[in-house]
Structures are given as C-alpha cells and as structure tokens.
C-alpha cells in the first residue's frame, strides 16, 4: 500500500534523492581513483617493494614506506594494548557495575574524550605528555634502559608518547561500541548466570564471551581510528623515519609523513610516493569497515540462531 501512484512528483523526488545518493558512493570511488592516479609514478617505480624498503631518500629519488608502516602499526598496536582493556573495563563498569545515578555523567565524560579536537590533544601532548615521558625514561633504572625495548637517548618525543595520546583518543570509540554490544547481550544471559549462583565477575565473563565477536569489532574500529590519526601523532612522535623496537625512539607514521611533506615535495615521484601512502591508509579503512561489518553480521546471525534455540528469551531493551 506504500506504493501510491508513481506520479511525476515521485519521479522528481526519486531523482532528487538518487543524485546525492550516487554522489556519496561516487565520492568514495573518486577518492580511490584520484589516489591511484596520483600515486601511479610511485607504484610503477617501486611496485610491491615500496612496502618493504626502508630508505626514504628524496634526493636520490628512492622511496620505501616501511618505516612509516612500522611506526603506524607499532604506535596503533601499542595504543590498542592500552586502550582495549581499559575500554572494555569502562564498558563493563558502565553497563553492569555502576550505580544508576552515576551512569549518565560517566558516559558523558568518557564520550567527551571523543569530542576534543586532535590538535588540542597534540598541544597537550607537546607540553605535558612529552616532558612526562622524558621524566619516566630518565627515572628507569639503567639496566632496563639498556633493553632494546627502552633504549635510546631521552628525547621525550617518541613512539610511546604517540601511543599514549592515541590510546586516550580511541578509548571513547572502543568503549562506546563495546557498551552497545554488551547492551545487546540478552538479559537472560546475565540472569541465568546469576541464577546459577555466579558472582558478578563470572556473570560478566559469560556476557563478554557472548559478545566477544562484537568486542573484536569495536577494537578493530579503534584500530582504524588510530591508524588514520594525524595531527596529535605528528606533534609528539618525533618524525624520524627509522624503524626501531624502542618505545622511546622517535619514529614516524604514514599520516604524519603526508602532513609534513605533502605541500613541500618538489619532485613528482616524491609526491606520488606520499599519495601512495595515502592510498594505503584509504585501503586500510576500507578493509576495517568491511571486516567490522562482517563481524557484526556474524554476531547478529549467531544471536538469531541462539534465540531460535531459546524461544522463551524475549529481547528486552
């Protein structure tokens, strides 16, 4: 009955909405095409070697992106190592533990972290976090500072500073999606556990197990955010294209090298190499999106299946 007569106004309406819809899809395609076109010289010159070569030498016209990929993965990975447990903890606290009166203000405060602009994180990073990292490094006993993981001069601007800023920045994303996922866990899962005499933690574990796929998706979303973050990282990571295991070493990320060099590259090849790095960032977000969608899809399918086995459980909001 929705289908009223397909009159002329309907045609206009359809056109009016179809064009912008096509535009949104076209925009994503256009970004991909433009990046490919503007990266073609670099793709042709270096091929797959671009990803494994470690030299970034604008004078010799040699470009390898490995140090940037390394720095990006290392800083994002370390950030997630910190942010994921904290975010899950927050989600558990806010869903299950927190007194009702405190919930709304705490949700608000944790989400406030997402509203703060990257540049403000960067400013704070330079003047507060970086000196703190330097103090931390100086306070470490020499034996620990000799380890490859902590070696190097005390500079402050470092991979660790970037990872710390990143972890704070992605916490609101991971915790809010995890919260949603936990909320989607049917009430009977918790109640069943409690009924069997489970402690609060045991009941929570049941829920976490139930929601694990969605939580992985949440963490992945956080990864996507961390990989693409530009300003705050550029300001605290030290911008040195040398891959190192040391968390105190200044390193570089893909987004940061584009921010630093894009407006300044003189040679076409240099520019195309930077755009190719942008292309990888773009592809990464595409893949993260596809993967997290797949996970969510799998979770909802699992849920349907379980609901089918347990028809008594009504969905309660």
């Amino acid at each position: 009955m929705r289908r009223s007569r397909p009159g002329r106004t309907d045609g206009v309406f359809r056109l009016l909405t179809t064009v912008p819809a096509l535009l949104v899809v076209g925009l994503v395609a256009a970004i991909g095409v433009v990046l490919c076109l503007d990266a073609r010289l670099s793709i042709a010159a270096f091929g797959a070697g671009f990803w494994t070569r470690t030299d970034w030498d604008p004078i010799a016209g040699q470009f390898g992106a490995f140090p940037f990929i390394w720095g990006t993965l290392y800083s994002s990975g370390l950030a997630l190592l910190i942010a994921a447990p904290v975010s899950i903890g927050i989600a558990v606290f806010l869903t299950d533990v927190c007194p009702h009166r405190l919930r709304a203000p705490l949700v608000f405060l944790t989400e406030l972290l997402a509203a703060i602009p990257s540049i403000v994180y960067g400013l704070w990073g330079i003047f507060v976090l970086v000196p703190a990292v330097r103090l931390l490094q100086e306070a470490l006993p020499p034996r620990i500072r000799a380890l490859p993981l902590f070696e190097g001069p005390t500079v402050g601007v470092s991979l660790l500073a970037a990872a710390l800023v990143l972890s704070v920045m992605v916490i609101p994303y991971i915790s809010s999606v995890t919260r949603e996922v936990l909320r989607a866990v049917p009430r009977h899962q918790w109640e069943g556990a409690y009924a069997l005499g489970a402690t609060r933690w045991e009941a929570t574990r049941v829920a976490l197990r139930y929601a694990r796929v969605g939580i992985v998706g949440a963490v992945m979303l956080g990864f996507g955010r961390a990989v693409g973050e530009t300003m705050a990282v550029t300001m605290v990571i030290g911008n040195s294209p040398q891959a190192s295991w040391s968390v105190f070493a200044p390193q570089y990320t893909m987004a940061a090298v584009i921010a630093n060099e894009f407006a300044e590259a003189v040679e076409d090849l240099h520019l195309h190499a930077l755009v190719e790095i942008g292309l990888v960032l773009f592809t990464t977000t595409l893949m993260v999106n596809v993967a997290s969608r797949a996970l969510i899809w799998q979770m909802s399918r699992d849920r349907r299946r379980r609901l089918a086995q347990c028809p008594v459980a009504a969905e309660t909001p």
Binding site: D55, P58, I59, V155, G156, V157, T234, P250, N260, V266
Partner: peptide, 28 residues
C-alpha cells in the same frame, strides 16, 4: 648523504620548520 632540500638523515629526530627544530632543541 649529498645535497638537497631534504636528505636522507643517517641519525636524529625531525622537527617541522625552523620553528620545529628550535622547539625540539630547546626542549631536549
């Protein structure tokens, strides 16, 4: 290393602009 407006630095950390280098030196 050679000569150019940006070179492949064997060591060190990078700052953006004269500003950025002065800032890093001052802080370190």
């Amino acid at each position: 290393v050679g000569v150019g407006t940006s070179v492949k630095w064997p060591v060190g950390i990078g700052g953006k602009g004269n500003d950025g280098v002065a800032g890093l030196v001052k802080q370190t």
